[in-house]
């Protein structure tokens, strides 16, 4: 069971990188923040997929290398718990992105209740009605809004963004 104290209004750890920014931090210590996308606890090793606004990275905790408290924390995690991870970025032949993070410290800042109203990974199918009610738990990204903004307003001679008035007589 989770051992962390009741989450407070801030965190001890401060994020240093997004998960998309780890390429240049090989063999360096980083602090990441995000959601538990998936967690697997095996005999000699635990895996945590940590998701943030920029992507997902694998956090790997081998029993031989990771501190006992970290292993215990990982065993108590559920999908969508919110946490900070301090760890070393190392290269990996197995992890999808060719890198993984070996954790030295975990700080859980918010626990997700179980069961979730839907599966944010999309592995389990969900009714449309449920998806619409809990859309913010899906946490999808919308890069299209950024690209249309770039299209309309790249320079001074481009389109001026107006927000027209709602109240009118007709």
């Amino acid at each position: 069971m989770p051992t962390a104290a009741e989450p407070g209004p801030a965190s001890r750890l401060r994020r240093t990188h997004l998960t998309s920014q780890l390429g240049e931090s090989l063999n360096k210590e980083v602090v990441l923040a995000g959601w538990v996308h998936d967690v697997r606890v095996l005999g000699g090793i635990s895996f945590l997929l940590l998701r943030d606004m920029s992507g997902i990275v694998q956090v790997t905790a081998p029993k031989a290398k990771a501190p006992a408290e970290v292993l215990k924390e990982i065993a108590g995690l559920h999908q969508e718990d919110v946490l900070f991870v301090r760890g070393m970025v190392v290269s990996s032949k197995i992890a999808k992105r060719g890198i993984e993070v070996i954790p030295s410290e975990l700080e859980v800042v918010s626990r997700a209740e179980t069961p979730l109203p839907l599966d944010p990974r999309g592995v389990q199918n969900t009714l449309l009605e449920t998806r619409l009610n809990w859309i913010f738990v899906v946490r999808s990204r919308m890069p299209s809004s950024r690209s249309s903004r770039r299209f309309y307003s790249p320079s001074e001679s481009s389109f001026f963004n107006v927000i027209t008035w709602r109240f009118s007589r007709q």
């Binding site: 209004p9 918010s110 626990r111 997700a112 009610n133």
Partner: peptide, 13 residues
């Protein structure tokens, strides 16, 4: 209720 419930499934500060 729906506002409060929104914070039950993994809400960061």
């Amino acid at each position: 209720k729906s506002y409060v419930d929104a914070f039950r499934y993994g809400a960061p500060y």
